[in-house]
Every structure is written in C-alpha cells, then in structure tokens.
Amino acid sequence: MEHYSMNLTLQIWRQKNSLDKGDFETYEIKDISSEMSFLEMIDVLNEKLINEGKDAIAFDHDCREGICGACSMHINGRPHGPWHATTVCQLHMRAFKNGETIVVEPWRSKAFPVIKDLVVDRSSFDRIIQAGGYISVNTGNAVDANAIPINKDNADDSFAAASCIGCGACVAACKNSSAMLFLAAKVSHLALLPQGKPERKARALNMVAQMDKEGFGSCTFTGACEAVCPKEISITNISRLNKEYFGAGLSIDKQ
C-alpha cells in the first residue's frame, strides 16, 4: 500500500484523576505517517504536548505487539478501533483518512474506574483470576508434554480460549458491561484440559461469584464482545461456562 501523510483532529478524553469529572480535549495533529501505529501517533502528540509544557496523555501500553492486553482505547465508538481482531497497538494509521476526526475514550464500566485520561483500573480482572483462574500443581521438573493424551479438538478449543489477553474490550463493548467472554475464555481454557479438571467445579463457581462482586453486568448474548475481541474468542465459550457453572452448582461437594 502506498505511503501517505495526514492531518487529523483528535478528540481525546482527559481526566486528571479518578475524582475529576473529565472532558474531551481537541487536538490538531499534522504530518502523521500512514505507516505509524495508533500508539506511535499518540506518542508524537505527547512529545508535542511535553514540549509545550503541557501534561502528556496517559494511556496503557506494554508489548506493542498485540499479546499483553495493556492497550485499551475506545476509538470512534469501537474498542481497539476499526480493524477486526486487532489491538490498538497493532492498529495502523492507514486505517484513517486525511482530515478525519478521531474520538478516543477510555473503557467505560463501573468495574473499570478511570485512573487518569485513557487509563482504567482493570484489577477487577486480576481478582477474578485469583478466584480460580489457575491450576494447583507442585513445582519441580517440567513434566513431559505428551505424558497425558489430549483429544485434538479439546486441545484446539483450549488453545483458542487461552489466547485471551485480558484486555477488557469485551466489557467495554457490552451494553451490560458483562465480563462473561473474558471469564468464559479463562474457564474454558482450563476446563478442557485434564490438568484443569480437578478444580473445575470450584473454579466456575468462585470466578462467577467474584465477577458479580466486582460489579460486572450479566450476559444476555448480544454478541458485541465476540465482534470486538482482538483475539476472536468465540461466544460459544460462554455457553460452555454456563454448562460448567450449572454442573458445578448441582453437584459440588460441600466444602
């Protein structure tokens, strides 16, 4: 694709801290290369702001290669911007045209309070993982990977679910602010493998209980999460989570 430069108008959410009311600021930015990533474009804007003695725009980022789940911007009404199955850090400026206005907002959910500008507190996800998103094994020498035979379909489904990077786009997109796609990915990833089986009942019950406690909404299967997930986590994982949850609720041993 041919390289081109563009001038853009950005409307970006600015908020000093969690208590500040916050508002949109408008910025004009010139000579942005179509080959830049979206975050690099923000870097350019931030350098300009710093040179002018202003406060840089705070935003989350880490790997910048689509694997860590840190980046989180709601761009023109869509989490992670216009490209399908792409994190913001992998979004390139060629997705935009010269002269365009781009609106950038933080994830909006009571369970993800804004810390500053575009940075939200996603520790609610960490607490959901702490409630059961792990397996308990004694450490030691690594076990031979092929010691336990695993059905290929289960291995594939588990692997697909394991690709969830915990970014929270599913919550940001859902009209109910439900975290069910995230939870379903984590539960499915482990429940499909023999290593995850021993704790599967307590895992499903405890993780769902923690999700409710954190103030996420309930799933009504609108499908918005699946449509925006950068890792294309399938919504059928939520059905699997429901099955796990009902099964566990009916049969768990008293603790």
Binding site: R108, S109, S177, G215, T220, T222
Partner: peptide
C-alpha cells in the same frame, strides 16, 4: 430486574456507541 441491573453497570456512557457494529438492535432492546 436484569435489565435495570445491567443498565446500571456502565456508569458514564460513551460519546460514540458501538451500536449495530457489534450486535443486533433487537438483542439490545429485549
């Protein structure tokens, strides 16, 4: 009960919504 609970979860809303790009209008208006 479900609808009102779910409606209360967002807090501040978006300036631009995902709208029909992610889900069917009737799924959101049950």
């Amino acid at each position: 009960v479900l609808e009102s609970k779910n409606l209360s979860r967002r807090g501040k809303g978006y300036k631009i919504n995902l709208a029909n790009r992610g889900s069917k209008w009737y799924s959101r208006t049950m």
